[in-house]
Simulated assay, not measured.
Amino acid sequence: MAVALTTLVEETDRYLNAVKIADYCPNGLQVEGRPQVQRIVSGVTASQALLDAAVEARADVVLVHHGYFWKNEDPRVVGIKQRRLKTLLSNDISLLAYHLPLDVHPEVGNNIQLARVLGLTVEGALEPDNPRSVGLVGSLEPPLSPSDFMQRVRSSLGREPLMIEGPDLIKRIAWCTGGAQGYIEQAVAAGVDAYLTGEVSEPTVHIARENGLSFFAAGHHATERYGVQALGEYLAKRFAIEHLFIDCPNPA
């Protein structure tokens, strides 16, 4: 079966409530391709490697978390931007990208999906008084030592996390996927035992140590693989079309 591109975009925008979420990039249809969609290829980032794989897979749409046209980037279509856009346009492939809407969604969002992968029980938002809060707070049942939880992260995500060891047991934990190390202050305020995100900055280590908090940096790419997969599966079932997730390895 096939679905009209306009119908697919409208449903995805509606499902993710994309119009109401302010962001650093345009969410939704970023590059328009053929009008009918039978196969979606999803991935974390619209890199050249993903685009080449999508061409080989005969995709009609590439669905990603990290797309193009970020605020303050060079607007010229040169270099890798020219090559990426040329690949999409010459093969009549559409690019659909959702950044923050895919982080915060309560069903297919990166943070809720990471909780399912790591076996975390969600209690609520990291910033309960902020309606646009991205991160979550939850619990580990049963509680685990930092080293045991690190092993769970390693085996679940297939990546060696950076760990700053805090309390003997992790009972409550906060997390926010991607480059959200700056939210560690909110994690401290939430009174959790540990905070997990994708990246780490130099001050993050000191903040964790001086507040007696365990900290885990499990990789920007590795923590954000699951939302786009779940969204792709939702669309495949909704419209009876094909979906293929392609993971282009990224150690960051």
Rank of each mutant, 00 (worst) to 15 (best):
R209Q: 15
R209K: 15
A2M: 10
A54V: 04
E10L: 10
N17R: 15
D74S: 07
H99Q: 02
I246K: 15
S133I: 12
A222R: 04
V122W: 03
V200S: 14
Q48R: 08
E202F: 10
G166K: 04
S133R: 13
T12L: 12
A222Q: 12
L85N: 00
Q38R: 14
N111W: 13
S94G: 11
T7S: 15
M150T: 11
S94C: 11
A18E: 10
Y195H: 08
A57P: 01
S90M: 14
N250P: 09
A46F: 05
F69M: 05
Y24A: 04
H221S: 03
T7H: 15
G67Y: 05
I21K: 05
R39I: 00
C176K: 05
V228W: 12
F149H: 03
D92S: 13
I184E: 02
P131W: 11
R116V: 15
T45S: 14
F245T: 07
N17A: 12
E32G: 00
A115M: 15
L102R: 01
E160P: 02
A252M: 08
F245K: 07
L244K: 02
Q38N: 14
I93D: 04
Q186K: 05
A2C: 05
Q113N: 05
M163R: 00
P26A: 11
H99A: 08
G109E: 13
L213P: 09
G138H: 04
I93Q: 04
A218L: 00
L126M: 12
V77I: 13
T204P: 07
E73S: 07
R172V: 04
V192P: 06
L50G: 01
V137Y: 05
P106A: 03
G67D: 03
D129S: 14
I173G: 06
N111Y: 12
G179M: 10
Q151D: 03
H105K: 09
P128W: 01
M150Y: 09
P167I: 03
T87H: 01
P143I: 04
Q229D: 09
K171Y: 01
A57D: 06
D168C: 01
H105V: 09
V41E: 03
C248M: 11
R84I: 00
R159C: 07
T197M: 11
G28R: 07
A4I: 09
A22G: 13
C25T: 13
A194P: 02
V228S: 07
G109L: 10
Q38L: 07
D103R: 07
P161H: 02
G212W: 13
Y195L: 03
Q186F: 02
V104Q: 02
V62M: 11
N91G: 01
A190P: 06
E199A: 12
I112C: 06
V117C: 06
V44Y: 03
L169M: 15
N111P: 05
A187I: 11
A49H: 05
P203W: 08
A208M: 11
G158K: 09
F149P: 02
P75E: 04
P249E: 01
K81M: 13
G109W: 12
L29S: 00
L144I: 10
I246C: 14
R58K: 13
E224Q: 14
S42Y: 05
S147N: 10
V153A: 10
K71G: 08
A217M: 11
R34K: 12
A194W: 05
